[in-house]
Design a protein around this nucleic acid. Structure first.
Length: 571
RNA sequence: GGUCCGGUAGUUCAGCUGGUUAGAACGCCGGCCUGUCACGCCGGAGGCCGCGGGUUCGAGUCCCGUCCGGACCGCCA
């Protein structure tokens, strides 16, 4: 804490070695404890908590007793050793014997405890966010956030990245999430859109020769909220020229390791690499939580040799959960879950060497060669592998309260499909339409587009997609081929993405990049379960800022002007 | 847009199959207290039971609607 004319020290910085010095502190009253013959007052500032002390015969005894919670005060005195130290506090060895006190501001009684263990519910905390952020735990989260950004800036700058800002008022592009839209006053009938990401702008920066770009940038997507999703969020956005996918992975693997080492002092272990196909086959998800080793194994060939009627003509997957016993109740719930998806689920339970299974009339359990107690599951269906494998895996982990094998599991997911089908059966970009097709699959782009892999990659941490990126199409010819595969004529492509195609035609270097979801990553790094804990001023699930009371109606004048813009014909 | 959970004192909650005057803890106010740190002890104040309608002799409780918060599905290239 910086000394100012109001203070000589930060409250939380004082130790036994400072005993005897005259100290002045300024901060908030956490609590007043009047014991009759003396009084203790805890003062809090960003650095921590310090205990003030005055005996009943002190002229400051009465004024200290009269303080209220969260009043802002300045206190001066000599630091002394405590008679009864508090080992739970960094400053627990010392206290300040008050010889001067000034009330800088009083405070209304706060609606909830301004403590780590607060009694306030989230709704109330959001309404009084400034009080919520005053809690030490929230202060630490703000500090962690600032540190993370500082670490990223230093690291990337040292790696030759250039920090460049891109505009917040851009144009709406088709596909993707719903845009937030801003009427353009000077051009009635036209609109800006807030960026869902600076994707195209950073590609243009590569065309400009920036070589390596990064930006810590706000992005906007007008979609529904979740605990891990806000409409307004912060990305670390990066793009590099003249690099291969392998080089990009190495650079950002370095960044991730650096962040864990600097921020948490943790050495992250191996960062696994899985193809999308492997991830779906073994975990049923493109963002599996690999803190758990649990994995599906396909046993279709074996299953077809058994006399189980509902396994014939199906693909069958086997999952073994060692050491657990599942109640009939749980088994019934999982079965219902599978059947709701049109799949069949069968169990085998081994407990103290004895088998229980509904399939005993088809084959002897002993032939499975299980060597330990546990629960086995067979999931069978025509459309497997699919997301049901993942749903069941995570439900099992949750319902059985399985312990993770490791606190951190980082993995690259590679070789995503380039395209996927919309529910209406139309071809659409799996990632975005600027991703470069995998060179090995390029000749199938027109005939078998769904089998084409892309040069996209995701970094998955503990089941969350934390970073996502790809190599991009860098020639107009290739970009047009992808657009055409997506059903866009050359005219339509130029109409929607003319500026990009034009730029690619002016000597775009090979390039690729990625974006990290910083809020989500920080949520994991600080051990939270909600983005609202790491975003200083978040919104509720319905997009409201309970403190500012946003969104709010416009004034009649503003509203009339908007209506005029909306009704102007867009030529 | 859909499903589910919640809304009672400043706060967190309890309040049974509808039944007299709606409770507890913390906080707040007053008093006492020689080492507290979730101080302790004694006393006190504090309620539009989210809002609107309905059923009923009678509604915090049951029904319908609505608003707010949360979780999940859809959505999130």
């Amino acid at each position: 804490m910086q000394p100012t004319s109001y203070r000589t020290h930060g409250c939380g910085t004082l130790r036994s070695s400072d005993v005897g010095t005259i100290v002045r502190v300024a901060g908030w009253v956490r609590r007043v404890r009047d014991l009759g013959k003396f009084v203790f007052v805890d003062v809090r500032d960003r650095s921590g908590i310090l205990q003030l002390y005055a005996p009943a015969d002190s002229p400051w005894y009465q004024p200290l007793c009269a303080l209220g919670r969260e009043w802002v005060i300045q206190a001066e005195g000599r630091l002394r050793q405590r008679e009864s130290p508090n080992p739970n506090l960094p400053t627990g060895e010392v206290e300040l014997e008050v010889t001067a006190l000034r009330v800088l501001n009083t405070a209304a009684t706060p609606p909830f405890l301004v403590e780590d263990e607060t009694d306030g519910q989230e709704e109330l905390r959001l309404r009084y966010r400034y009080l919520d952020l005053r809690r030490p735990i929230m202060q630490r989260r703000l500090q962690q956030r600032a540190r993370l950004m500082d670490i990223l800036r230093r690291y990337l700058t040292a790696q030759g990245f250039l920090e460049v800002e891109t505009p917040m008022l851009i144009r709406s592009t088709p596909e993707g999430a719903r845009d937030f839209v801003v009427p353009a006053r000077l051009r009635p009938g036209t609109f800006y859109a807030l960026p869902q990401s600076p994707q195209l702008l950073k590609q243009l920066l590569m065309v400009a020769g920036c070589d390596r770009y990064f930006q810590i940038v706000r992005c906007f997507r007008d979609e529904d909220y979740r605990g891990d999703r806000q409409a307004e969020f912060t990305q670390l956005d990066c793009e590099l020229s003249f690099v291969t996918r392998e080089e990009i992975l190495e650079i950002f693997e370095g960044l991730v390791r650096h962040v864990y080492a600097e921020l948490l002092g943790i050495e992250v272990g191996e960062i696994k690499r899985l193809t999308y196909a492997e991830a779906m086959q073994r975990y049923g998800s493109d963002k599996p939580d690999l803190r758990y080793d649990l994995a599906w194994e396909e046993v279709t060939a074996w299953a077809h040799r058994q006399a189980v009627p509902f396994w014939q003509n199906k693909r069958v997957f086997w999952l073994w959960v060692a050491g657990v016993k599942a109640s009939r109740n749980l088994q019934a719930r999982w079965k219902a879950l599978a059947e709701a998806a049109g799949l069949s689920l069968a169990f085998i339970q081994r407990a103290e060497g004895t088998y229980t299974t509904t399939l005993s009339k088809y084959f002897a359990p002993e032939t499975l060669g299980l060597s330990e107690d546990g629960l086995g599951l067979w999931l069978a269906g025509e459309k497997l592998p699919g997301p049901e494998l993942g749903l069941l895996r995570s439900t099992l982990i949750h319902d059985l309260n399985l312990p993770p094998q490791r606190p951190w599991a980082l993995a690259w997911i590679l070789d995503f499909p380039l395209f996927e089908l919309t529910p209406e059966g139309r071809l659409t970009a799996a990632h975005h339409p600027f991703v470069q097709p995998h060179p090995e699959d390029l000749d199938r782009l027109e005939q078998e587009p769904l089998s084409v892999r892309s040069l996209a990659y995701d970094l998955v941490i503990n089941g969350y997609e934390i970073m996502s990126g790809s190599l991009r199409c860098h020639t107009p010819q290739l970009q047009l081929r992808v657009f055409r595969a997506l059903g866009l004529s050359e005219a339509e492509a130029y109409q929607q993405f003319g500026f990009l195609l034009e730029a690619l035609g002016y000597g775009a270097p090979p390039h690729g990049g990625c974006a990290f979801g910083l809020d989500r990553w920080l949520m994991l790094l600080t051990g939270g379960t909600s983005l609202r804990d790491v975003i200083p001023f978040p919104k509720t699930a319905s997009g409201a800022d309970l403190m500012l009371q946003a969104p709010a109606p416009l004034s009649p004048e503003q509203k009339a002007e908007i209506l005029r813009w909306l009704t102007v014909e867009n030529t």
